[in-house]
Amino acid sequence: MTELLMRVDGLEVNEVPDGYVIYETARDRVHYLNKTAAIIFELCDGSRDAADIVARVKLLFDLESSADAEIRGAIDSLLSEGLVLSHSN
């Protein structure tokens, strides 16, 4: 079974030159995502799991394996902030 990641509904996403400013309607909260976090957020489209997203971000930015933990940390932040949720495939 795979845990796929997807963006939650009810977010108002605003793009600025350095990333995303997201307004979360349900909790009346504003989130600020830098460029990397914004890319990770975009990759959470319901068709990929965390390992796939980590691999893609590493490829995109030409990163070493040592970056895995940092990218996973960013995914965890998106999950804990309620911007992304996981569902079993």
Binding site: E12, N14, E15, Y23, D28, V30
Partner: peptide, 17 residues
């Protein structure tokens, strides 16, 4: 106002952009 917060974020982000 709280009611307009989402719209406010959007217009502020637009002009800052």
């Amino acid at each position: 106002t709280r009611m307009d917060r989402g719209k406010a974020v959007s217009v502020v982000a637009k002009f800052i952009g």
